[in-house]
Amino acid sequence: MSSQELIQDLKERARQLRRDVVEMVYRAQSGHLGGSLSAAEIVAALYFHQMRIDPQNPQDPNRDRFIPSKGHAAPILYAALAARGFFPREDLWTLRQVGSHLQGHPDMRKTPGVDMTSGSLGQGFAAGLGMALAGKLNGQDYQVYCLLGDGELNEGEIWETAMAAVHFKAHNLIPIVDFNKVQLDGPVSEIMPIEPLRAKWEAFNWHVLEIDGHDMNQVVEALAEARRLDRCVVIIAHTVKGKGVSFMENRHQWHGQPPNEEQYRRAMEELGGGQE
């Protein structure tokens, strides 16, 4: 595949993931759309290109790991895992149902391919650091990717981990901030501003790659760059909450609200044709 074909393929993957996310949350009538849609390109690039994973061997000790520290983005993770064949795509429609292996937030004991239970904000990054250091201690070369929410950066624990990761030279830990500018109660800039974000990470001695998180070229390049550099690298991905569905974009109301039937139809129309 040429690099242009790769980018086209990943863009298409991201579009399909978005469709599955909307479908899942519509059917469940519960779940977090906005923060899943904003991360579609990032998750598509990780699961269909960057990460070394084997759906036939989800517990491979040498696999790359992914922790959605912003665990409410579970739908986009589930969509990617299903698309990679970790479990049947039909399972997606059981999201949040009693007995389903697809919990509202990721549960490593229930869902094949989920590397860590997450959902209480601020915690997944720390577990990622432990995993990264264990890999170094084991002499393994896997990478640990953590998807952090911008609202999640309000949590003090994130900065404990940011401080410790540099101290321990956890260069195989790659946090990606899904900087969609909106948290549950409103705009991040009003609820609890996190700017200047680049300067914050730099003050903690991180190397910052700042990208447009919806530009697949930039996402793919940043992931490769982060892996190549022998230092702690954070990717700040500027994104749009609810990306891909016009009436959901940039609106905090769509953080955790399911669409009704009419909204669902409009959303699926905007996201384009599905694969059957």
Binding site: P61, M108, D115, M116, G122, Q123, G124, F125, A126, A127, G128, L129, G130, M131, A132, L133, A134, G135, L137, N138, G156, E157, E160, T161, M163, A164, F168
Partner: peptide
Amino acid sequence: PERLFEVGIAEQNMIGMAAGFALTGWIA
């Protein structure tokens, strides 16, 4: 010394890191 991780005064991060070690087969 190589198996001791001094995390500083940061108990929350410490427990998360311990979880990460356990996830890769260590007793943390």
